[in-house]
Design a protein around this nucleic acid. Structure first.
Lengths: 336, 336
DNA sequence: CATTTCCCCGCAACCGGTTTCGTAAATAAA
DNA sequence: TTTATTTACGAAACCGGTTGCGGGGAAATG
C-alpha cells in the first residue's frame, strides 16, 4: 500500500480510503488507485485490517466429522452463502470428542472468528464452553445437533415428527416390533427422533420396547456385531429405524450375512442423505434431511446478526422439515 | 496483553515473550504470566501476531466441491494433521469453475494463508493463476486433481495403473466392449485413467473404441439420459468403467430402467470411495482411492515446506496407490 | 472581493502483539 | 576486586492497514 501511495504521489490514508470505498475520495482518484492495484495484483492485507477493525470476516464451522453426506452438503450450503457475503470459512472437526470441541472453541476467544456455526459432538453433555464464548461476544448458531437449553438460534429439522413418521410408516407396512438404532443417548436429535417413534407406537397401542433401543458405536465392525446380535434374538424386530446414516451399511450387511430378507422379514428405514439410497439392494426408504438448506440457513442467520452490532441472536429453534422418501426396503415396491 | 502486563507489573514485551516461549524469560515469570492468562482465559490475538510475523498459521484447501466421499475423507486427513501442527484450515469451493478458482487464489496474494492445498476444477485448463501465486511465495501442493506441468509437489494415486487394472479386470471377466465414463476431457486424472484403460485393451488386441468414451456432466438427470442412450446402442457395451463416483448412481438407475442385468448383461466398475459400495444392488466393484492418506500426505508435505524458509517444493509426483476391490457387479459373486 | 461551504486529501494515532537493542543486576572469570 | 559474561527484562520501532481530525483550494454565496 505504501508502494501504491508512493507510485501515485498519494498518502497511505488516501489509498486505504479507496479500498474501503470512502466517500471522501474522488471517483477519479479511486479509479487511478484501483487501476494500479489491479496491475500490480495488489490485495490489502486482511490481518492488518482485521486487527484495526476488530472484525475478521471469517467464521468457524465446527463439526463432529465430515464422514457422512449430511455434513458434506451442509458445508456446501454454508460456503455458498459465505462466499456471497465475502466471508471466509474455517473448518474444525471434533471427532465426536467434547474435549476437542472445548479446545477449539476456547481458541475463538482470540477474535479469530466473528461467529461460529456448530453441530455438537455426541459426547457433549454441557454447554459451558459455548456459553463462555457467547459471553465474549462471539455469536453462535447451532445446526442439526443443537443444545436445546442454550440461548441462541438453532437450526434443526423436525426430528420428532420425522421419527414419528418413520415409525408410522413401518406400522403401516405391518411392523409390530420396531427397533431404533442410535449412536448417542444424549444428543437431542437422537432423543427427539426416538420420542417421535415412541409416540407413534404408543398411539397404536404397541408401546416401545426398551430392549429395542440399540446403542451403536462409531466402529463399523462393532456395529455389525451389535446388529447381528439384535437380529438373532428370539423376538427379533420386524422393522428397524436407523437414526444415523452410517448405520445403514451395518444393517444391510448383517441381513446379508444372516440371510434375512429386506423387506420380507425385516423392513428398514434410515435417516440418510446418501445419494446411493435408490440403488441399494433393496433401495432404501429414507428420512432425508435438508442438509444444504440447513447449512445455508444457519449461515444466513449468523451473517444477519453479524451485520448489526450488539444484537444477540434470538433463542429460537428454526425447523426445516425432512422428507420421507419411500422405497423398496419398507415396501418391496419401488416408488421412485 | 496490556492488562496482563499491568496486573503483573511487567512490560508488554515481557508478556509477549512468555507466549512465544522465549529463553529470555525466567521460568518463574513464565509461570506467573501463564497462570494469570489461564485464569482470565486470555488468548493472544492471532491477527496481530500474523501481521508482525508475516505468518498466518493458516492454510487454504481449495476443492471443486464436497459432494462425494473422496473430498470428505481428504478433508479429514488434512484437518487431522493441521490440528496436530497447530494450523488452521480455510475451505473454499470452486464448484468446478475456473473463474472461481482464480478469484479464490488471487485473494491469497494478501498473505491470508501460508500455503495452499488444491484439487483443481475440471474447467481448469491453464495454471497461470497457480504459478502466479507460487511466485508470490505461497507454496502449493496439488492432490488428486493435479496440474502435471506445474513445478510443485503433486499427490496423486496411480490413475493410469488403476485404469489398466479396471480394464484388465473387466477383460478377465469376459468383457469385449468396454465403455469409459468421465466428466472431463482435460483433467489429468481422467486422461490418465483412460490411458490405462486403452493400454489394457490394446494389450489384448481389442483397441478402445472412441465411441465408447462417454462424456457426462454434473447434472444427474442428463447423465441418466446419456447413459441410457449408451446402453440402447446396437453395439452396446458389456462393461462400464465409471471414472467418477457420482456416475455410479446414473449407471445403476439406467440399468434398472432398461432392465439390463448387472453383472449378467453389463459389468460395472467404478472409481469410488462410497461406503455403500458393498450394499448396492449388486455390490459394486470399485477402484478405491486412498483419500484420507492423500489428504494427510498433501498436508504433511506442505507443512514440511512451511517449516523451513525459502525452500521451494520439489516438482515431483508422489503416488499413493489405489486398490481394486472386486465385488458382485463384475463377477456375480460377492468376495467381501 | 470577502466569506462560507464543500470536496479531497494528508497527518498521526491506533489496533495488539513481536522483535531488536540496550541495560541493570547477577554470576563467572581473571 | 576488577572485568567479562550471562540472565532477565523494558523501551520503542514495527507489521500494514484504518480513521478522526484538520487544512488547503475550488466553488458557491453575499
Amino acid at each position: 500500500m505504501k508502494l501504491l501511495a508512493k507510485e501515485l504521489q498519494l498518502s497511505v490514508s488516501t489509498v486505504s480510503k479507496v479500498f474501503t470505498d470512502s466517500h471522501e475520495i474522488s471517483e477519479q482518484t479511486k479509479q487511478k488507485v484501483l487501476a494500479l492495484a489491479k496491475k500490480l495484483n495488489y490485495v490489502p492485507n486482511p490481518y492488518a485490517s482485521s486487527l484495526r477493525k476488530r472484525k475478521s470476516k471469517t467464521i468457524a464451522v465446527v463439526l463432529p466429522e465430515v464422514a457422512d453426506s449430511f455434513f458434506s452438503m451442509a458445508i456446501n450450503g454454508i460456503e455458498s452463502i459465505a462466499r456471497e457475503k465475502g466471508y471466509h470459512v474455517l473448518i474444525y472437526l471434533t471427532h465426536e470428542q467434547m474435549e476437542r470441541e472445548q479446545a477449539i472453541l476456547s481458541d475463538f476467544q482470540s477474535g479469530r472468528v466473528d461467529g461460529v456455526l456448530i453441530s455438537i459432538s455426541n459426547e457433549t453433555t454441557n454447554d459451558e464452553h459455548i456459553i463462555d464464548m457467547m459471553q465474549r461476544g462471539i455469536p453462535v448458531v447451532f445446526f442439526d445437533r443443537v443444545c436445546e437449553e442454550t440461548a441462541t438460534t438453532r437450526i434443526t429439522t423436525n426430528d420428532r415428527e420425522s421419527g414419528q413418521l418413520a415409525a408410522q410408516h413401518l406400522i403401516d407396512q405391518g411392523c409390530r416390533n420396531i427397533a431404533y438404532l442410535t449412536i448417542s443417548g444424549s444428543l437431542s436429535i437422537s432423543r427427539n427422533r426416538l420420542a417421535g417413534v415412541k409416540q407413534a407406537l404408543t398411539a397404536h397401542r404397541t408401546p416401545f420396547n426398551e430392549r429395542n433401543l440399540v446403542m451403536c458405536t462409531d466402529n463399523e465392525e462393532e456395529n455389525l456385531r451389535i446388529i447381528k446380535e439384535l437380529l438373532q434374538r428370539k423376538d427379533r424386530p420386524d422393522g428397524i429405524i436407523a437414526s444415523v446414516e452410517k448405520l445403514t451399511a451395518a444393517v444391510y450387511l448383517a441381513c446379508k450375512e444372516l440371510k434375512i430378507a429386506i423387506p420380507g422379514k425385516l423392513k428398514v428405514i434410515s435417516f440418510s442423505n446418501q445419494t446411493t439410497a435408490p440403488i441399494l439392494n433393496p433401495s432404501l426408504t429414507t428420512i432425508t434431511q435438508p442438509a444444504f438448506a440447513m447449512g445455508k440457513l444457519a449461515a444466513e442467520v449468523l451473517f444477519n446478526s453479524l451485520k448489526k452490532t450488539n444484537v444477540t441472536l434470538k433463542a429460537e429453534t428454526v425447523v426445516v422439515p425432512s422428507a420421507l422418501v419411500v422405497r423398496e426396503s419398507t415396501t418391496g415396491r419401488d416408488l421412485g
